[in-house]
Amino acid sequence: MRKIISVIVENEHGVLARVVNMFAARGYNITSLTVAPIPNSEFSRMTIMSEGDPKIFEQIVKQLYKLIPVYKVIESDDFIEKEMAMVKFPLKDVKDNLADIDALARCYNGKISNVNDKSVVVSVVDRPNRIDNFLKAMQAKYKNLEIVRSGVSVIER
């Protein structure tokens, strides 16, 4: 089962390792992980997407609460989810299709971000499953893509 949680942690030495260890020690895979400081506070927000047995997950959440620098664990079925992806195309493969690519990227809150003499970079921001769709469409049509995904970030509605 796919699960997303946000963990609010104190910005301190080793806190990321503590949180990630909880998953690793229980054989639980992390699909994606994003971390950034929360502005004007001593906290950071980690967003973790993972996959596995819900019972183990429940235990992980309780164990996370037990970690001293963890302030809060947010579980919700009502998150707004966003992820960013960047795709790099070799210029020679796409130079005749730039308008198409740009138009499609716009459907996913994106655009062509950069063009130089070797490559074209497109970035998009959307829900993770929409990003999947966008990437599938690109991979079906073009070869030699380089793809970077940011991992999901969420906020409660």
Binding site: H13, G14, A17
Partner: peptide, 13 residues
């Protein structure tokens, strides 16, 4: 602290 992390309530460097 890497070694004792999973066997302590908390640790500090």
């Amino acid at each position: 602290v890497g070694v004792t992390r999973p066997i302590t309530k908390h640790n500090f460097l």
